[in-house]
Design a protein around this nucleic acid. Structure first.
Length: 211
DNA sequence: GAGTTGATCACT
DNA sequence: GTGATCAACTCT
């Protein structure tokens, strides 16, 4: 990937923040995946945080510790990937210190690099032509994982070095934005936690999955 | 509103 | 070990 498209990769210390701070800080950053097929990248425009043993929406609620959730109990900055609804993967950034099982679900990216490869992975016949089509390419956690080729193969990878990493946006991609917040999506089972405003997105961005 | 499969849990 | 349940989603 050329240096003009994405800035420096973050350091491990980038992830050592309170989870709500990190969630907001991830907005506007680039997610990059280098594979043998090629490199794809997108700007993070929508996230949700899941906060440990007391969050009824979280996989780690009640301190549940299984093979699937194990990485959440480790240090922050690693990939938590899980399989859902029999056909999709969801990608999360592990947050919180060791033994503090928190994570941030990346819900939508604005496509930047490797549009043709992303489109092919998504099963599209052609590269999207209109701005609207392009904005929907990685708009939703399942779509994002598919387009970026993130599966359980990437479970546990550190996100401060290739092949899968968070980077500063290219200089040209740095623009001011406002952060909006609201309830998380599809966690109706979470009782009082379903109303917590723990979804954050870039106000007005066309790639946000639920504007 | 259906699809599709693996993780999880309540039981033997 | 076995079987039932259902999911942090997507497309029609």
């Amino acid at each position: 990937m050329s240096e003009t498209e994405v800035g420096p990769i973050v350091k491990p210390s980038f992830f050592e923040e309170a989870t709500d701070v990190l969630a907001r800080r991830l907005l506007g950053m680039a997610l990059v995946h280098e594979t043998t097929e090629g490199t794809t990248a997108g700007l993070i425009v929508e996230v949700e945080m899941y906060r440990g043993p007391h969050d009824k929406g979280a996989h780690s609620y009640g301190g549940r510790r299984t093979i699937r959730t194990e990485v959440m109990y480790g240090p922050p900055g690693h990939a938590y990937v899980y399989f859902i609804y029999g056909m999709y993967y969801c990608f999360n950034v592990v947050a919180g210190a060791r033994d503090q099982p928190e994570a941030i679900l990346i819900r939508a990216l604005k496509p930047m690099t490797g549009m043709d490869l992303m489109a092919r992975r998504r099963g599209l016949k052609e590269i999207p032509q209109t701005a609207r089509q392009r904005s929907r390419l990685l708009s939703g956690p399942g779509r994002l994982a598919q387009g970026m080729a993130i599966t359980k193969e990437q479970y546990g990878l550190p996100l401060w070095k290739p092949p899968l990493y968070i980077a500063e946006p290219a200089h040209s991609g740095r623009v001011a934005f406002e952060v909006a917040s609201g309830p998380r999506i599809n966690i109706g089972y979470a009782e009082e936690a379903k109303d917590y405003p723990w979804r954050f997105w870039i106000q007005g961005d066309a790639s946000v999955s639920v504007p």
